[in-house]
Amino acid sequence: MSAAIEGRNLKRYYPVKDRGIFAKSSILKALDGASFSLESGKTLAIVGESGCGKSTLARLATMIEKPTEGNIFISGIDPHANNGAEISRLRQDIQMIFQDPYGSLNPRKKIGTIIEEPIVINRKMPAAERRNLAESMLSKVGLRPEHYDRYPHMFSGGQRQRIAIARALVLKPKILIADEPVSALDISIQAQVLNILMDLQEEMNLALVFISHDLSVVRRIADQIMVMYLGKVVEQGDAKMIFDNPSHPYTQALLGATPAVDPKLRRERVKLTGELPSPLNPPTGCAFHTRCRFVQDKCSTTAPKLEMQFERQVACHFAEIAMKN
């Protein structure tokens, strides 16, 4: 079976111009080589801190932007080949939900109009049928059909996120990109939204790309995981294996920094000293070497390649040493 969505060596660079007349322009490597392949019904979690390139990856996957290098394949088709002839058809296969439930719904439109928008744009369907479909989506995400005529400001954050899910799934897409979908929500609401997301994933056999910084949520739902740092993938592979036995020092630090309620789940806190370097001016060699506790001379000169080690992809010269600690 072919992958629902596949990325091959995706890169996205942005030219950045400093202000002023004599400003020199530099290049921001927002995403610097990411490959992945995700089947229907599975979940890929993309984990990393701000500026790691996870949102850029989402923009490439949803075809809003073109990769600088590399290819994206949706249902096996490269949308940017043939001058983008396939883009509009492929858009129906991929949808997205966002972090901020307050910004992601148009405040001047009724809930019904918001949910129907993808249908109106992509299909020809009589209004009554559209309304039926929208109302059935509303009940699927646990809202009532009479919410159809209300405006977004009358709903709480959790309800808005349900509406966003209804909008994303109304066209029955094959792939759903979820960019931090629960991090703005309260714990009890977060659990409700995650359940809905997982139920609908199963029902519609969705390939889910789940972008998050909250590792406790990721641990709950991911099949595969991709850890990113400053635009580069540092570790990638089976989620359970990586959670149980992280091999990249950065993954270890991330897991250690996540506060856990249960003392058994608490890892020894690996102190990460220092700040996240600027993505505009990343360190030479391994991007993580400025904060790494296993750093050696080689790290600051040679960038490690993403290689198969310990049944997963790791980009670290000294993964073995890191694994032992």
Binding site: S188, A191, N195, M198, V261, L265
Partner: peptide
């Protein structure tokens, strides 16, 4: 609230929730 934490329900199919708002 504690039951709804994802880390407390790793072996459950669904996350326990608090219904309503």
């Amino acid at each position: 609230l504690l039951n709804a934490l994802p880390e407390r329900s790793l072996d459950l199919d669904r996350l326990p929730t608090i219904e309503g708002v």
